[in-house]
């Protein structure tokens, strides 16, 4: 497998939900160590696209390939092993509420990867340490802040050694003062070479991180290119117009967009 060949690839994904075409023939691929950021208005299909990419939502048609080989969604064993290799972070964390932070990270290691309790514990503690939560291992989700919950969720996904991570608006459900701690973890991951597809509205943050922006609207990829290109001063891109609108609403300084 050469450096340039894509780790994850989607070809011609189509999905109709409740009579609406949510994805209209979407294709994308991502190479090792790259970071792609999905942006676009709500309802554009970003979330559906991410969930189609790890087949949590089965696409009506289209194919998903991991390292060049197509995933057969009807083969349960293949599907489970594929999903292990594709980490997923959700907007609303989806921690297992009856398990401590440690057990949240440990449960899949033991049930899915069949690790011994000792090994799984060691690994889980290491991942919690990586996201700065070693001292919170014994706490339950009900006793964690939103930012801490999302970091546990990230540790849980990382413990499975994913080849690529899909992050679905990881900071959208967080109070403003908690966003920073999650973004810091995501930045560390990117700098550590993790391959990521990230849907977010944190434009200035992701502009500094992304190799490519993918702008989606009404189930289609409308524009894609490097943030510098799409957000350049003279650029007349849809991406730039959208980002300007967001920054107006959230009060982000316009200067932050400029690379």
């Amino acid at each position: 497998m050469s450096e340039s060949s894509p780790i994850l690839e989607a070809r011609g994904l189509v999905k109709t939900l409740g009579g609406n075409r949510v994805l209209e023939n979407v294709s994308l691929n991502i190479g090792r160590g790259r970071v792609k950021v999905l942006i676009g208005p709500s309802g554009a299909g970003k979330s559906t696209l991410l969930q189609c990419l790890n087949l949590l939502i089965p696409p009506d048609s289209g194919r998903v390939l991991l390292e060049g080989s197509e995933i057969d969604a009807r083969n349960r064993r293949e599907l489970c092993s594929f999903r292990q290799q594709v980490g997923m972070i959700f907007q609303d964390f989806n921690l297992f509420d009856h398990l401590s932070a440690l057990d949240n990270v440990r449960v899949a290691l033991m049930k899915v990867r069949r690790m011994s309790k000792l090994d799984a514990t060691e690994r889980a503690v290491a991942e919690l340490t990586r996201v700065g939560l070693a001292d919170k291992a014994a706490l339950y989700p009900a006793n964690l802040s939103g930012g801490q919950k999302q970091r546990v969720a990230i540790a849980r996904a990382l413990a499975m050694d994913p080849k690529v991570m899909l992050l679905d608006e990881p900071t959208s459900a967080l109070d403003p003062e908690l966003i920073g701690e999650v973004l810091a973890v995501i930045r560390d991951l990117a700098q550590g070479g993790m391959t990521m597809i990230l849907a977010t509205h944190q434009i200035s943050f992701s502009a500094g991180l992304a190799d490519e922006f993918i702008f989606m609207e009404r189930g289609r990829i409308v524009e894609q290119g490097s943030p510098a290109e799409l957000l350049a001063k003279g650029a007349n891109s849809r991406t730039k117009a959208f980002c300007a609108k967001i920054s107006e609403l959230t009060g982000e300084a316009d200067a932050e967009f400029r690379q």
Binding site: Q51, N54, L56, C80, S81, R83, Q84, V86, G87, M88, F90, N94, L95, F96, A108, K111, V112, R113, A153, R156, A157, M160
Partner: peptide, 8 residues
């Protein structure tokens, strides 16, 4: 969904 995303 989170559990299935982990490969369960």
């Amino acid at each position: 969904r989170a559990a299935m995303a982990l490969g369960m």
